[in-house]
Nucleic acid binder design. Structure first.
Lengths: 144, 144
DNA sequence: ATGTATTATTTGTAAATGCAAATAAATGAT
DNA sequence: ATCATTTATTTGCATTTACAAATAATACAT
């Protein structure tokens, strides 16, 4: 029907990709990537999480996450520990360096939030966030 | 500050990735991918476009696009032609098969639009689209 | 208690992506 | 007219990613 830039998936991807790229460039000098930031942000909410849990909350595929965590471990940002209760499980913990890095990224993330939402009233921003959550939930229905 | 799922870039990416994946699965049986559909949709708006132009309107990186178009050409969906006015330029044209495929994908794209926006009033959908365009434009300001 | 099914993570492998360099052609300045 | 600069596309290469298979450990049923 309409032109490409009226398609929601396109608009969504385009905007998402642009923010992701810009943000990624911003945190690269700190030795991090967007995905690493996601993991750090998830661990900031709750530390010592299992891989599957992290995969779910960050929306990073588990096999991708494994390799990402490999890198983060090499950089000394996180720590894989065994779960005493279940030997299959790996619990991921932030290190002191990881926390330091997190503290440096937080203000960048906040700035990006501002730049992306420039000209949006607070209500509009909340409406947008709500819409994106709804949209995400709607896609669940396709999995039956 | 808040939890990961209050960050706009995350919400955006998560929703975008989910739609992209689902849509991709849907069109794979037809021998297409999401990105191919983007190219076809752009050519449906206007045929005989140059690579750089297509890259811009589809938001697909030029080098990625080159290889994507290689595949599409092999499948007989599009046709690379020389621009008589400028020998550097490649003009991309849809073939009859490409048009046939496009006609088969259009209804799928429309269905996805509906599924993604289920429960949204038409106004809400338009507000969302406008917000995504604005957000995309806002990111331009970072390139100075 | 033993075998089967389930769950958690990792590894193999192939495809997609993006940056930078290479190629090729046009434009503009001298 | 010739050379340097810019523009358009492609290729080289390294990184990211995802699916599926492999590995390892628990849980469940008999």
């Amino acid at each position: 029907m309409g032109p490409l830039d009226s398609y929601l998936p396109y608009l969504l991807n385009r905007a998402g990709a642009r923010i992701a790229t810009a943000f990624g460039e911003e945190v690269r000098p700190l030795g991090a990537s967007l995905q690493m930031w996601r993991v750090l942000a998830a661990l900031r909410e709750r530390d010592g999480r299992r891989m599957g849990d992290l995969s779910f909350t960050t929306s990073i595929e588990v096999s991708t996450l494994t390799r990402l965590v490999d890198q983060m471990e090499k950089k000394g940002l996180v720590d894989r520990r065994d779960d005493p209760a279940d030997a299959r499980v790996v619990l991921l913990h932030v290190t002191a360096d990881g926390k330091r890095l997190t503290r440096r990224i937080v203000p960048i993330a906040e700035r990006y939030e501002k730049v992306a939402l420039k000209g949006f009233a607070p209500v509009e921003a909340q409406v947008l966030r709500a819409a994106l959550r709804r949209l995400y939930a709607n896609m669940d229905e396709l999995y039956d």
